[in-house]
Design a protein around this nucleic acid. Sequence first.
DNA 1: CGGGATGTTGACAAGCCTCAAGACCAGTGG
DNA 2: CCACTGGTCTTGAGGCTTGTCAACATCCCG
Lengths: 231, 231
Amino acid sequence: MLVRSARSVTTIGKNNGQRITQFGVIDSEYGLIGTNDYFLKEAQIYGEGDPTTYVYQVASGAVRSCKLLSDGRCQITAFHLPGDIFGYELSATHPTSAEAIVDTTLLTATKRSLQQAAANADVVRKLWDLTAAKLKHAEDHLLLLGRKTALERVAAFLIEMDCRLERSGDLPLPMRRRDIGDYLGLTLETVSRVLSALHDEGIIGFSGHARHIVLRDRDRLRMLELPAELN
Amino acid sequence: MLVRSARSVTTIGKNNGQRITQFGVIDSEYGLIGTNDYFLKEAQIYGEGDPTTYVYQVASGAVRSCKLLSDGRCQITAFHLPGDIFGYELSATHPTSAEAIVDTTLLTATKRSLQQAAANADVVRKLWDLTAAKLKHAEDHLLLLGRKTALERVAAFLIEMDCRLERSGDLPLPMRRRDIGDYLGLTLETVSRVLSALHDEGIIGFSGHARHIVLRDRDRLRMLELPAELN
DNA sequence: CGGGATGTTGACAAGCCTCAAGACCAGTGG
DNA sequence: CCACTGGTCTTGAGGCTTGTCAACATCCCG
């Protein structure tokens, strides 16, 4: 199932205008050499415990990072969308596995090359910021998983995707209901039921197929994300 | 309720043998000036959204970091025990609040002084490691909150405390049942019921009062932390 | 057109939460 | 020394949210 092949080589460097094709904040002054790698749907990019050899940026497609229990229970810690960098860890091994959700193209650099660039204090700061951003996301997610209701979780998910896909209310989600459930600590059935309820309320719509969600009433969605205030 | 007073000044520096009275890994080569601050039980050290001015190390006592929802729901993201450093954030404001669980003494340094020390790459690396360690803990906790049962959560909590208090099976817990619940995404009643069940099974004992737990069968506790294997 | 993966919906069960009562404990003041 | 008081902990009964299991619908792709 694992498909991993280097087809082309790309120089990631200064003035490479495309947001999608550069290593975000950390490449602007360093001519890192990156490789385009292609992964089919469901292909594993790395496993939990694998050595942290490469760092990735999503060029197209989508990736999930997850932790598994031996009986199959799964917690997705993050979705990685075009432009996102993932796989950079201080530790020698990956704390999560990573799989392509759909057919995906990744820009790959060696951790080694980043560490060389990290002789520069600016680069260090930017990589550190990346760790800090992941920590902030994880802490927010702790509150969601520990204390929010199914409705609040799904609302929060839709709002997060709305912010990240940035197509203003039009969400062509790459992931299945099961992935959403594994991200939100719910079952796929519960996710489906909540989405149906939001649809019945006129808060969201489906554009064609089930994964293409349209936000029809962001304000009410934002209300649902927060606890209902009792008077 | 907030009690915050500087009573004495301590030099934190090289060859200051006490683990408790130094800023762990980051002070060994820098003579940071620290202040002892005392907080009564339940006193707030900083609030969610407060500016990140100080960094703290627990000298004695215990601290919880938590996130609140407007209706009172609370998620504790971490407990800080003697020797632990907390409150260091890259961001300008604290993402969580921090309160003393019991009467607590903290060693305080300004974020500014740490940033000055961070001119040295070793110090940066050690601070970064601190962020990475928090991230690892948060990601492990995501799996616990999203996918584990009440029994597995409580077992994991006891094992975590056993490792951190390091008194080999003797756990004089500083926190109340409610705090444990807010850490594990459970109610205090569920925590109490699970602890009673573990007691009935002979896996734990109570030494005197309810907060003093003794681990009588670590092996079985470790089994409970993991999913029961079906044959 | 057929088959497999995905999504929806229903009925029911289970685990955890809510509410409530009482036990226990520590600190306080008589 | 002891009763009082407030906070904490335990335990029970019952309910609710979410999970489980199953059937069916839908979509995609050959």
